[in-house]
Amino acid sequence: MVTVVVAAHDEAAVLGRTLRTLLADAEPGEFEVVVVANGCTDGTAAVARSVPGVLVRELPEPGKPAALNAGDAAVRGFPRIYLDADIALETAGARALAAAVTAPGILAAAPRRRLDTTGRPLLVRGYYAINGRHPAYRNALFGRGAIALSAAGRARFGAFPDVVADDLFLDGQFTEAEKREVPEVATVVATPRRTADLLRRLGRVRAGNASLRAADDRVRRARRTSWLVDVVLPRPWLLPAGVCYAGLTLLAATSARRPAVRDGWGRDESTRAPAPAEADGATGAAP
């Protein structure tokens, strides 16, 4: 049995698709799925209950770490996949991630990411032209919306700490040799639809990452010039995109110092609402 934990805060618009995609080809009893609706003001819990076999827990206050801990407390199975509520992971993909952490020495696995920039503004597309090639994402667990752990991998730490960057926290628990990116599995990460949404998201994530790095020396360090040295210089035609990337990163660094940004929810809401030509909405939120 593969266990899947989904922390969901006001995800009624996308959660149904996520659960249907995950369980579309599942055999009876193959998956144990728990959805922890935390601080929801919409029909997230009702959507989860409408899917047969899904266990639902509700928390009165919003907070992803608390929701992940509540999900862990409700299940016992391994391998265990922590899946974002807006990420459509197919049944075969979940199987492949679970199989990856049964290999000798592999404690954690993640899919490769595929960035959806369709119809996005020029500045957003420029930013992700660099971000999508950034070496920090190689063999990393963060930025995919899905992470699988073996029982030994989950035993590496206790409760999820109260941090924003839960995927970066998980990434820091394992060595390079203990992690694996599963190339045959891809999750589609929808990028923000507006530049202002991207800036808000970047500011919040940057503040959260900085806080986590200050508290935990196992978390991988940020190499500030990597976008230039490793991405733009070998590909000079990306220079205009590099200018977008550098400018937006600088603005995000400035906004990350503001209390309203550090303490806000930080989620990109633009990818939760369906675009005019999209019946089911987007499939992810960018890191």
Rank of each mutant, 00 (worst) to 15 (best):
Y128F: 15
L170A: 11
R235K: 13
L123D: 03
V188E: 15
L228Y: 13
A140F: 04
V182M: 12
P240N: 09
W227Q: 13
V163R: 03
F169D: 13
P234R: 15
R133N: 00
R221A: 15
G153V: 03
R206T: 15
D167E: 14
L141A: 04
V232Y: 11
A152C: 04
R133W: 00
V232F: 09
R133T: 01
T175A: 15
H134C: 03
I130D: 02
I147S: 01
Y127D: 02
E178H: 04
A207I: 06
G119F: 01
G158Q: 09
A140Y: 01
V219E: 02
D171Y: 06
R113A: 12
L239E: 07
A109C: 08
A241P: 05
A215G: 11
L168P: 02
R221P: 06
L212T: 05
E184H: 10
L198N: 06
N209I: 05
Y137N: 08
R154Q: 03
S211L: 14
L212K: 06
R213F: 03
E178P: 00
R193T: 07
A140E: 08
N139A: 12
L170R: 08
R223Q: 13
A210M: 07
W227S: 05
V188A: 14
Y128G: 00
R138S: 09
G208T: 09
P161C: 06
D216A: 14
A146G: 10
L239K: 01
S211T: 14
F160E: 01
L168W: 06
R204M: 05
R193I: 00
E181W: 04
L123P: 03
W237P: 00
S226T: 14
P240A: 05
R144K: 12
D230T: 12
D197F: 06
R221D: 11
G208I: 06
Y128M: 01
G132A: 01
T195N: 01
A196M: 03
L122Q: 09
L233I: 12
P192A: 01
A215N: 10
D116N: 07
V163P: 02
A110P: 05
R144F: 06
L238T: 15
R120P: 00
V219I: 10
R221H: 11
R125P: 00
R221C: 02
L239H: 09
R220T: 04
A129E: 07
R154H: 01
P183H: 11
L168N: 02
G126L: 10
V219F: 11
G126M: 12
R224I: 07
R120Q: 01
A129W: 05
H134I: 04
K179D: 03
D116C: 10
L107W: 07
L199A: 04
D166H: 04
V188I: 15
K179F: 04
S150G: 03
R220K: 10
T118V: 04
V124C: 01
